[in-house]
Write a protein that binds this DNA or RNA. Structure first.
Lengths: 190, 190, 190, 190
DNA sequence: AATGAATGAGCCTTCATTCAT
DNA sequence: CATGAATGAAGGCTCATTCAT
């Protein structure tokens, strides 16, 4: 007897449930108990797969990183020019936040509840944001190919900051007008 | 016999200790027990002053709002022009984050660990940010007095977004170069 | 309303129950859960009185030390001479072990399950045994007043070793003949 | 293909690791998990060799009995006379305790954490001690060949008690002077 | 002979809150 | 205005054991 193809392993089920709960309720406000209960697993099963809650948290953020990047790239890859891709990132932001009920970014949320910079979760968080930053850098370099490295860096960083600032205030106010303003500023930079 | 002037009431002592701990450790990760212990108060004393942890949280954010605004205004009020005041807000941001060991903004941090938008803490948070936003609006209106309301709004919002985006990435990366980029963009807008 | 005189405080009830269970089942094999359940207390109540299981363990050993010493002194104080007191200690040993179902000595038992010599419980244990040793020393000095300090020390130590060795083998074999042999040797030393 | 001679079977590896851990940490404080992890075995492997933790405990004590007896006999067999062998047993005690960091006797330790006299582990323990007792009996009979059986028994038992009492107090106080006293008393008995 | 996922009771401890004094 | 004992659910984690492969 082989497992049915569409059945997840217990480990994956746990990660899936945890992803939902960590995002919706926050990392610290979500207990292992709730996770395993909703995943239909036993305590021992959980700890045979993850040596601690933190390890699950890391698995969650790694998975989230992959998923989120996939969403974003699927959204912007159809665009032809680097410029439209950059603008597309901000369009994606609006779409994403609406779909997510303005819960914000799993990575920023977790950073905010994790003061210790040396914490392993923080490493995943900064990696995630660094990769987004790199995307802005790459697209900016392509779009502003004639400008100097320094000018490119200034613009890419500004785009990244605008993205993050808009994101956090969409979460705060659930008001999409922030996005309109940001997009206007973005086009001004391109 | 009146209390000596320099002695805080138990209530104020509790708020003071809570402010430190909520900010440093996060709201949810800080327990009432630790607060009253460090404040030298009894359980019952705490609950005679605050009907719940949330009420203390609100008192904290209200006090924090006043304190933070005071810091900011003391920093920018000596500046003469609205332009230098706006730039001053970003200088303040750098100073503040360094002093705070890059722990970020108490309000954003608490928002990130509080998913429910209807939560009473969230009201204090949006009030705080709205007031900062208003400050950008007022200073922009003064500086760009000749521009239209719509143009002013665009610029003020952009400044606010830049502030928030820089703040959150200073917290994430502890790298002040984000601030340099933001300031360059700010001056470009003025 | 004052408490009835014969009612123990929750704290004392916990210690009393713990004393029974720690002795009968061993320190590590007895859980806080069982203790509070049998004492009719809540988890939180326990931890408002003791900051950890270890602290309860120490309270237990301190109380046990007092109780056991009281038992012993009540048994040997009626005896007139130091010699009969020393022999009395060994009579007490037999009585005690029979009453205790040959469960042995709470202090030795706990020492054996606590490898770390720096452990706080180990301090209580060595204090307890040191005091018993002192008793042998004092009674020996009185009985053998004409002998040298060195000779006295040799005899007192031997008596202490005989006591401990007999105790542990009574526990092991539940065979009182060890005690008869020890007593014969004891009298030979006096 | 046969296994290389110097490779232990999984079963023996498990026993070897368990021996170390049970002795150092105590029987109840050592979990199956740690044992199999340090032995590089799987859960199922463990339970295919031992039907329970207790069975491993028994295997451990049986192996320990053989090992310890081997140590002791190797130490005293070179001695020529029964008297020097008896004294040698006490010299061995000092050597052993120093090598073992004064962790005491695996058998006594396990007895102390195992209240139930009917427990299978307790059988191994009393067997071990009985055999040591027999050794004292045999050597005493040889040395005091002219004395009566009853006198021999009295002396052998005293020697055994002295050994056990010294052992337990070496463990308690890590103070070798107990051993000096015991040896003086031993020689007085021979 | 060996694997390792799965179980669920139990470990020690902290949580926010209530209440009699 | 203050005290601190009492509550019981929940926190993260380990336990010895089973079983399908």
């Amino acid at each position: 007897m082989t497992k049915p193809q569409n059945s997840l392993s217990k480990r994956d089920e746990i990660i899936e449930v945890a992803s939902k709960l960590f995002y919706e309720q926050g990392y610290h406000c979500t207990g292992i108990q709730q996770i395993i209960q909703e995943a239909g697993a036993a305590k021992g099963t959980f700890y045979s797969h993850f040596k601690s809650k933190e390890e699950l948290g890391i698995a969650w953020l790694k998975a989230r990183h992959a998923t989120w990047n996939h969403w974003l790239l699927q959204f912007i890859n159809p665009k032809k020019t680097p410029k439209s891709k950059i603008v597309g990132i901000f369009d994606f932001l609006g779409q994403w936040m609406q779909d997510a009920n303005f819960r914000g970014c799993a990575f920023l949320n977790t950073m905010c509840e994790t003061p210790d910079c040396e914490n392993a979760l923080r490493l995943e968080i900064s990696n995630h944001k660094r990769e987004l930053f790199e995307l802005f850098r790459a697209l900016t370099a392509e779009h502003h190919a004639t400008k100097t490295k320094i000018e490119q860096e200034q613009i890419a960083t500004t785009l990244f900051i605008l993205f993050e600032g808009t994101l956090i205030q969409l979460q705060n106010f659930q008001d999409l007008s922030f996005l309109q303003v940001a997009k206007k500023q973005v086009t001004a930079l391109l």
